Computed example of a mutant assay.
Amino acid sequence: MLALLRPALWLGSCLRGYHMHAASTQQRGDTSLVLVDEARRFIQDCLLRVGVSPSKVRCISEFLVVADYRGNYGSGLNRLDYYLSDLQSGHAKVGAEPSIISETVSTAHVNGNSALGVFVGNFCMDLAVKKAEDSGIGFVVAQQSHDIGMASWFTFRAAGKGLAGIVMSNSAPTMMGPNSKSASIGSNCFAFCVKGEEYHFVLDMATSVKDIGAVEWAWANDEYIPHGWAANEGGLSTCFPSLALRTPLLFPAGGHKGYCLSAVIDILCGVLSGAQYATHITMDQNQPSNLGQVFIALDPEFFLPNFMERFDDFCGRIQNSQPADDSEPIRLPGELERMHMNYVEDLRAFAYPNSLLTKYKEVAERLCVKPIELAFDRCQSRKSF
């Protein structure tokens, strides 16, 4: 079984950019395999127990499972406990549905009504797609929304229709500005997806060096974080995720450039939409969520009929450039995620840290649902998967 766990640990470390600290083989093996279907089953059972309808449960579970499937572990099963807590406290509303405040042929202003972000995002992007199909572009802003998790999920809805998708969201202040030791803005996310005949381009990034989910995942794996990811309470860089999570204080990607990009996103998502922004965003779970988001769908062929041909040529020129290290090929955004997807498909399981599984054992007891069953309780060899 240890032979199965080692590749999972190695690949997870490479794909997430984490650096394992010096540890014994036993410490590195502090991970267990969970079949994909079992992770999905557990998520659905928990959501049903807090009053989510079966149709919505399926949507949320796929949303979280796909995040883990793509190697974005900070936004997958790791976030379930937060969603359960927000639904139970009223920070997000179980039965809420987004509604349109106003719209034109190519724009719309949406009230998320504190529904979970996945439902607000699906609603807004589908609306943007319809407008783009009619007019070439759809630009939708949302207020009173919730955390949208893996933002690229929503861009896929546009790409599946042959469109380019762009998603932005603000978030609670966790990022420091230049020469600051307090958080004044969120590590606001930006996602972009477009596909041609040969290439797919999928960008999903935070404006901080790493988002808070990556720090949480490092803590769950008992790993150090590289200096430059996050700061301690004094504003100094730390390699200990436990210290980084106390405040938290994240460093912007690229220094002032990441900070400025995050500010632009917050102006579009928070200020423009009528949602909360910057330090107005509350972390009080007893208050309804009021995050702001932007969803854009764009029909490239509305501007240029041979866009796909030119896009494939663009990607090919980047990928075929001379690598500095011949053993490391040039990769387009989204290719590392594809590698992880292939790995999960081969194994049909996720490698989760035991600390995370222990937490969800407690959640299962609290909600009176069947706890997560480990894959090696059923399977003794890779062929069994």
Rank of each mutant, 00 (worst) to 15 (best):
I101C: 00
F119I: 09
M150V: 00
P333Y: 02
K161I: 09
Y259Q: 15
L2Q: 08
A92V: 12
P371G: 03
K56P: 00
F385V: 01
G112E: 07
N122S: 09
I166F: 14
I318L: 15
C46S: 09
R157F: 04
K130R: 15
L298F: 12
H91M: 10
N342I: 01
W217K: 00
Y73E: 10
M205L: 13
A351P: 05
F42K: 01
P333W: 02
G334K: 05
S384E: 07
Y343V: 00
V57F: 04
G51I: 05
A39C: 06
I148K: 08
E38G: 06
I225M: 06
N188G: 14
S106G: 11
E233D: 13
Q143I: 07
V129Q: 09
L268V: 15
K181N: 15
D266Y: 15
Y82N: 11
G95T: 05
S187Q: 13
F302K: 14
R28D: 02
F123W: 11
A263Q: 13
I372W: 01
A132D: 13
K181R: 15
G149Q: 02
V369F: 04
S114Y: 10
N113E: 14
L336K: 14
Q293E: 08
A96D: 06
V264N: 14
W10A: 07
S327E: 10
M205D: 05
T358D: 05
G74M: 06
V141L: 12
Y352H: 00
